[in-house]
Simulated scan of single mutants.
Amino acid sequence: MSVDTSVMRAFNRSYVRRVGALEESFLGSGLPYGHARLLHEISLGAQVDGAITVQELRIRLGDLDSGYVSRILRALENNGYVTVRPDPSDGRRRQVDLTDAGQSAAEDLDKRSEERAHQLLDPLTQRQRDRLNEALATADILVRAATITIERVDPRDPVAQEAMGHYFAEIGDRFGFTVGDEGFGDDPSLRPPHGAFFVAASDGAPVASGAVREFPSTGSGHRDERTGEIKRMWVDPSWRGAGLGSRLLRHLEAEALRLGHQVVRLDTRDVLSEAISMYERAGYERIDRYNDNPHATHFFRKSLS
């Protein structure tokens, strides 16, 4: 299937010029765009956690080359904007702190960026601003969703635990009662060779997750190698509508095939109407109850062959 990239390429050329990204001194700040962007991310990290590590910076900026990040950090350090030192909690990592001069520079960048945004928006009518804001918000989440990678992680990994914390909190809120984690981190069925757990992250934070595992045969204690089961599917509410859930579901189906399964099953609850619609659009058919999950009301099956 051919993809028309002309609109996106034209927008990229127009936008980077109008926001000042091509200027040698970004927004007249005296810093190139790369230096200004890194300083902005360091400032954000300082606001949230008090500091940020070099590794976190690379993740937030799309796993930038470590040499490139180090060169910019040295330049910011030479300018007196940051200090780089071993992380007190883990000497193997490096922590980046803003100096007073760096904080002032970051605040100046924020002010200049706000002024440039006004230059772009002020000539428009309110209706045009609303249209632009809506279009940019849609474009932002779709581009971010397209560039997210879905990675296999151990259920005991902190990012998996964070994702499942959001998962259980949301379903408890949606169901109207507290739902326990049912020993999620210690479940061997969600780890190789019996299964796999996946997380999609943006800027280092989980925004979607899900698992596939072998389907336990009823009452036998043996596992049905032909059938897989999809579990723990979750998408951050702010990311819904960007197709991330459907993409994650296809990824889990592909993993089920890789594990040798020809059929997958899953269960859900009636209040999760968005999930039910997604499963039906993806070709899942309703079946009778196949397990004793007290929270589930709807059961689905799909042949992968």
Results as ranks from 00 to 15, higher is better:
Thr5Asp: 04
Ala10Asp: 04
Val16Leu: 15
Val16Cys: 12
Arg18Tyr: 07
Gly20Trp: 04
Glu23Trp: 03
His40Asp: 08
Glu41Lys: 03
Leu44Ile: 11
Leu44Gln: 01
Gln47Asn: 09
Gln47Glu: 13
Gly50Tyr: 08
Thr53His: 02
Arg60Met: 15
Leu64Phe: 14
Leu64Cys: 14
Ser66Cys: 13
Ser66Glu: 15
Tyr68Lys: 09
Asn78Ser: 09
Val84Phe: 03
Pro86Gly: 06
Asp87Ser: 08
Pro88Met: 09
Arg92Asn: 06
Gln95Asn: 05
Val96Phe: 08
Ala101Ile: 07
Ala106Ile: 11
Ala106Tyr: 10
Leu109Thr: 01
Arg116Lys: 03
Leu120Val: 13
Asp122Trp: 00
Arg152Pro: 10
Arg156Ala: 15
Ala160Thr: 04
Gln161Val: 11
Ala163Cys: 06
Gly165Pro: 00
Tyr167Thr: 02
Asp173Pro: 06
Arg174Gly: 06
Arg174Pro: 00
Phe177Ser: 04
Gly185Asn: 04
Gly185Thr: 07
Asp187Ile: 06
Ser189Tyr: 12
His194Trp: 15
Ala205Glu: 11
Ala208His: 03
Glu214Cys: 12
Ser217Gln: 14
Glu225Ser: 12
Val235Ser: 01
Val235Ile: 04
Pro237Gly: 15
Gly245Pro: 00
Leu252Gly: 03
Arg269Glu: 10
Glu274Gly: 10
Glu274Val: 11
Arg281Lys: 12
Arg286Cys: 04
Asp288Asn: 14
Ala296Ile: 15
Ala296Pro: 15
